[in-house]
Computed example of a mutant assay.
Amino acid sequence: MYFTHADEIWAAHPNLRALVLTADGLTSATTDEARLTDLAERIDRRQSEQAEAQMPEIAAWREAFTRMGLKPTQYRCASEALLRRYRKDKSLPSFHPLVDHLNHVSMAYAIPIAVFDVAHVDTGITVRPATGAESYETFQGDIENPAPGEVVFGDAAGHAHSRRWTFRQSARSAVSKSSESALIVAEAHHASAAGDLTAMEAELKTGLAALGVTLGSSALLSESHRLFEF
């Protein structure tokens, strides 16, 4: 399988950097409450210092959304949406030990993280403009067709595993209790993205191992190193 970004994405977003990892043994994952508490404290400190729009990671994603012709206050990247929700309630619903942990890491770094059950991905994922023929499955069970040009996580069978890049993920490949293997993707555009994603990689390797998840390969992607095969 593979993960990559299309040429059109790099042309429009040359500062993009991505961290990709694989994980197995998800059915054995358990919650690490101590790590979630530590991450929550880091999130609280960040939010006490800055509003989401002032965080350089979020500001860079807002600029990316603007370049795509989207209103960044209407369509927010996943990390901003999580942070804004967390600021109100100081908690998030629990879904799965892996997903819960990744949500907290995403908020601590203000960088969107997507996780896909690879059993429901055909051959691989390319972040690319949609053709208009892709199918996207909502969490309500509806099927949508992204408009031509909309950035999606598309697989070889024409499934869109996200809408508007990092705005909303598809139910088709969402991690569940029966999921065994996953692809994890974190993407950023800000000036220190490469260094921050390197730090996130170290954090995820330690944190996910503590959950009982088996980590596989990982890579940092840039315009000169675009393809991750696993």
Rank of each mutant, 00 (worst) to 15 (best):
A40P: 03
T37R: 12
R17I: 06
P97S: 07
A182R: 09
L21V: 09
L197R: 04
T123P: 00
V115A: 12
F65D: 08
R67D: 11
A40W: 03
F153N: 04
R168A: 12
L92G: 02
L70M: 12
E180I: 06
L197H: 03
S91G: 07
M107H: 07
A199K: 15
A34S: 15
N145K: 13
G124C: 01
G25Y: 07
V151S: 04
A34N: 11
A51Y: 00
P146Q: 04
R46M: 08
R87I: 00
L215D: 09
F230P: 11
V20T: 10
G132R: 07
S91T: 15
F139Q: 13
E137H: 15
S178Q: 10
G141T: 09
F95K: 14
T131N: 06
L204W: 07
G124Y: 00
I43Y: 02
F65C: 07
T31D: 06
T27N: 02
A114I: 02
R87E: 02
R164P: 03
E80C: 09
D24C: 11
A110V: 09
E180C: 06
A199L: 14
R46I: 04
E49A: 14
Y75T: 09
V152G: 01
S176L: 10
E144P: 01
T66G: 09
L26R: 05
D7Y: 02
P129Y: 05
